[in-house]
């Protein structure tokens, strides 16, 4: 079994209105140090082992559904979970 963590964020070149609103709020709370806030999504997938390559599968899922690559970037981490 694999535990896969997928992070989806708006591309750097795409303005993130939610992130901008959160940054304004942090500034008004006097956290002037904050330079940028990007809001994204975190997905955790449990994937059964099969004869299909895990990287291939996760990439395909990200490209097809989990991220919209017109405006979003994604990255992921694969962790192998040993059944007890």
């Amino acid at each position: 079994m694999y535990k896969v963590k997928v992070y989806v964020t708006l591309r750097e070149s795409v303005l993130d209105p939610q992130g901008a609103a959160v940054m304004n709020s942090l500034h008004s709370m006097s956290y002037q140090e904050v330079q940028d806030v990007r809001i994204g999504k975190f997905l955790e997938l449990s994937i059964e082992k099969s004869d299909r390559d895990i990287d291939f599968l996760v990439k395909e899922m990200c490209e097809k559904l989990l991220a919209n690559t017109v405006i979003e970037d994604y990255r992921y981490e694969v962790e192998e979970v040993v059944a007890l």
């Binding site: 209105p17 939610q18 609103a21 017109v70």
Partner: peptide
């Protein structure tokens, strides 16, 4: 239609949310 690729581009949240 955008998600299906029948039209180009994508939608973001409205600028003032």
């Amino acid at each position: 239609l955008l998600e299906a690729g029948l039209l180009p581009g994508a939608m973001r949240r409205n600028k003032d949310l």
